[in-house]
């Protein structure tokens, strides 16, 4: 246990500055998103916004998207620094020649992510949205999304040796997933309309599956350092995710 906290302290010392910047950006992004949601109203339709307010709403919306992209990029950078500093890919990492087991390293990194990324992100979201929008504006699904995003970023980081490779693998996985989703929605036409597509992202089961697959791939990588096998595990999650995502579209047909 001491070793876990010892590594955690080292990691915190390493990423503390970038973490502070991320906290600021996280708060800003959440505030802008909450403001944008408030201005757009429950329906989130620009057509219902009074003409004189449209420019302001558009500007806030644009800033919210920009801040969200920057926040995600910085979040990925923090995860990359954290994981790649004690890389589990290749055979040159410093920790490999030290009395540190893969399981303790995993425990330390997971604890660090939970305490410094997931928990603050949840808290910021809860606080900012309750302030701007209302007490019950943050759903369980929003909180689950924070956990899933951290797990996905960690998975990408443990399968790669650098931030650039991590972004590349993330791009490939996102590309495959989006292509699969488009293909399935094309197959299911006319069952899929805008409302159905919106429902996709509020269904919790596929995201729980993503979490489970990420967990298995991360554990396998830390405990065995067999990167090819862990990558296959991570990619196996994509078709399962797509099937769960699109299961409602085909229920009628089946």
């Amino acid at each position: 246990m001491n070793l876990i906290f010892h590594i955690l302290r080292k990691d915190f010392h390493h990423v503390r500055l970038i973490l502070c910047v991320w906290y600021l950006l996280l708060t800003l992004a959440a505030a802008l998103q909450a403001k944008s949601d408030l201005l757009l109203g429950e329906d989130a339709e620009l057509s219902k916004v009074p003409v004189q307010d449209k420019e302001v709403v558009m500007a806030v919306f644009f800033l919210a998207v920009l801040a969200a992209v920057l926040e995600l990029s910085l979040r990925a950078t923090v995860v990359s620094k954290l994981i790649h500093d004690d890389s589990v890919v290749g055979s040159t990492a410093f920790w490999l020649s030290r009395p540190v087991s893969g399981s303790k390293l995993l425990a330390s990194k997971a604890l660090f992510l939970a305490l410094t990324l997931v928990l603050p992100a949840m808290l910021v979201r809860l606080l900012v949205f309750s302030q701007f929008v209302g007490a019950n504006s943050t759903s369980r699904h929003d909180l689950l999304a924070e956990v899933v995003s951290a797990a996905v970023l960690m998975t990408l980081a443990v399968l790669t040796p650098s931030l650039a490779r991590m972004a590349f693998l993330g791009g490939i996985m996102a590309g495959v997933t989006c292509s699969g989703l488009l293909f399935l929605s094309w197959l299911a036409i006319p069952a899929v309309d805008g409302q159905e597509l919106g429902r996709l992202f509020t269904d919790e089961l596929p995201w729980l599956l993503v979490l489970a697959v990420c967990g298995v791939a991360i554990c396998n990588q830390y405990l065995t350092r067999r990167t090819a096998r862990s990558t296959i595990m991570a990619f196996t999650g994509i078709p399962l995710f797509l099937l769960l995502m699109s299961r409602h579209w085909f229920q009628g047909a089946i």
Binding site: H14, D85, S87, S91, T92, A93, F94, S97, R98, P99, V100
Partner: peptide, 14 residues
């Protein structure tokens, strides 16, 4: 590993 000292030109130091 606590009884082995390892130095390599390929090793990453923090």
């Amino acid at each position: 590993m606590s009884r082995i000292g390892y130095v390599s030109e390929n090793q990453d130091l923090p």
